[in-house]
């Protein structure tokens, strides 16, 4: 059983001792001087960082979840990188903004309203959601539309179990996910960079796919604020922006939701946003990606169709022109 408690020290404030000491040692060993040595050290540093996969963050541990075979053999992106390099415009547009800017964010108490085409609209607390289905760990690749990627050990429940619990009617063809937009706790919302609140959506069959999860934690702990606490969507075969964070409303509709990024740039961002190395973003390439955590000297890697999940999801798009439905 999991009890909400305000941590008196934040994840961001703690560097695990081993990492800290390894860094010291390395700096001494590297010595000061040539640029080459400095650059090399940055590259090597990341390998010492990669060993620090236990968060030691002070966030609440999630005690009860089952491991799954997803992501076997993948190298996890270090916790530090997963929680310090985030696109979460509600906390600022820089990727290092969300961590410091979300310190005062309160992910509890939290309620989620279920509305639209459902037999009975209702409001759930985040603790209710934790109990809908057994929590599972899913290690997924996450590919950002900007051309970088991570491997993250999420904890969550299949979105399908949440949807079954919500009892949508036969008219429900799409699900819309609406994020919190509270200018008091989310400084980024005060700037009209995007149309707030952030809206994302899925087709019903995409939402019901076993890969799609509502994540409530990562690295064995509840989600840090900057990663979308207390719950966020994770759709691993789509670009990261499809994963709405800090969700407060789930609405079932018969029409395709007008999502935030589609509204902001319809020629650059589509509703589907499936990871696809053969369809470039109008301004940059999508054929390769940079895996975060590799350091200065790790080359780009090839981006895979549907982010490598084609076996599980390609059939959802049979007969569709993915160049048009990007």
């Amino acid at each position: 059983m999991w009890i909400s408690k305000k941590p008196d020290i934040l994840a961001s404030e703690i560097t695990p001792r081993e990492v800290f000491e390894q860094r010291r040692e390395f700096i001494k060993a590297a010595g000061l001087g040539a640029i080459g040595a400095a650059l090399a050290s940055a590259g090597l540093m990341n390998s010492t960082r990669a060993e620090a996969n236990s968060p030691a963050s002070g966030l609440q541990k999630i005690s009860d979840f089952k491991k799954t075979p997803y992501g076997a053999g993948e190298t996890l992106t270090p916790y530090e990188d997963v929680t310090s390099y985030n696109n979460f415009y509600e906390f600022g547009t820089g990727k290092s903004d969300p961590k410091p800017q979300s310190r005062l964010f309160k992910p509890r108490p939290w309620t989620v309203s279920i509305e639209g085409e459902v037999s009975k609209p209702r409001t759930l607390s985040i603790d209710d959601i934790f109990k809908i289905a057994p929590l599972e760990e899913r290690i997924y690749r996450m590919r950002c539309v900007e051309g970088w990627s991570m491997v993250i050990p999420w904890i969550g429940l299949p979105l399908a179990s949440l949807i079954k619990y919500a009892e949508p009617t036969g008219k429900a063809k799409y699900v819309e996910f609406i994020s919190l937009a509270d200018p008091k706790m989310m400084p980024g919302v005060r700037a009209p960079i995007l149309d707030w609140p952030y809206v994302e959506g899925l087709r019903m069959d995409e939402a019901m796919n076993p890969l799609t999860i509502m994540a409530v934690g990562l690295y064995g702990e509840v989600l840090p604020n900057q990663n979308g606490a207390p719950m966020r969507l994770v759709v691993p075969w789509k670009y990261g922006f499809k994963g709405g964070k800090s969700i407060v409303k789930i609405r079932f509709t018969d029409k395709m939701p007008l999502t935030t990024w589609v509204r902001s740039g319809p020629t650059e961002y589509g509703f589907y946003a499936n990871v696809n190395p053969t369809v470039d973003h109008p301004r940059w390439t999508q054929s390769t990606e940079r895996r975060i955590g590799g350091g200065l000297f790790s080359p780009r890697i090839k981006t895979q169709m549907f982010n490598g999940y084609a076996d599980q999801v390609a059939s959802l798009y049979t007969g569709m022109d993915l160049r048009k439905n990007f």
Partner: peptide, 13 residues
């Protein structure tokens, strides 16, 4: 910053 491992999670960028 490079020597102090502080070039962010995406040092090349």
């Amino acid at each position: 910053l490079g020597m102090h491992d502080a070039l962010t999670a995406n040092p090349i960028e």
